[in-house]
């Protein structure tokens, strides 16, 4: 059983590869995407993704735009912003759009794993609550 099922979105291929290797070794299941558009396509196919690690500055659809799309289409998926371009403004903007947290490149691998775990836990709690709510709804309907 993996700790979490995550998607890593960054236009820097070597970075994605290095991170994939390191995170896989730490019992995380990684789906790689190299642009915002690709990430959205893959998310649509892979419903098991719990957390998205998203770079902000990317060619084409940038991180903030991708974040908005993810949050509107897959509201339960948590997003951690990871960027080499972190400024308070972009960080705050990300948080406003519903990102779970933001980290700056290069970051400590252990910090990142901890953040991912928190995000995954939050996502599962959300899901659980939704299931419970549905169950309640179904049971109350029966009564």
């Amino acid at each position: 059983m993996t700790i979490a099922n995550i998607m890593l979105v960054d236009d820097e291929v070597p970075f994605v590869e290095a991170m994939t290797r390191r995170l896989t070794k730490r019992d995380l299941e990684i789906h790689a995407a190299y642009s915002g558009e690709e990430a959205l396509q893959k998310l649509a196919k892979t419903s098991s993704v719990e957390v998205v690690i998203l770079d902000i500055k990317m060619p084409g659809m940038d991180g903030i735009e991708a974040l908005k799309q993810i949050k509107s289409r897959f509201p339960l998926v948590e997003v951690i912003m990871l960027t080499g371009h972190a400024t308070v403004e972009t960080g705050i903007e990300g948080m406003k759009q519903g990102a779970f947290d933001y980290l700056m490149k290069p970051c400590d691998i252990n910090d990142l794993v901890a953040k991912v775990e928190q995000a995954a836990r939050k996502k599962r709690q959300h899901e659980e609550k939704i299931i419970q709510a549905r169950v309640k709804e179904i049971t109350s309907r029966r009564e």
């Binding site: 970075f15 290095a18 390191r22 080499g84 400024t87």
Partner: peptide
């Protein structure tokens, strides 16, 4: 500075991650 920061942080991040991978 914003551009420089981005351009430097990305390669540095890759280097650090690769070093981390070696460590792993």
């Amino acid at each position: 500075a914003t551009g420089v920061a981005h351009e430097i942080n990305n390669p540095v991040a890759i280097m650090v991650e690769e070093a981390g991978w070696i460590e792993d």
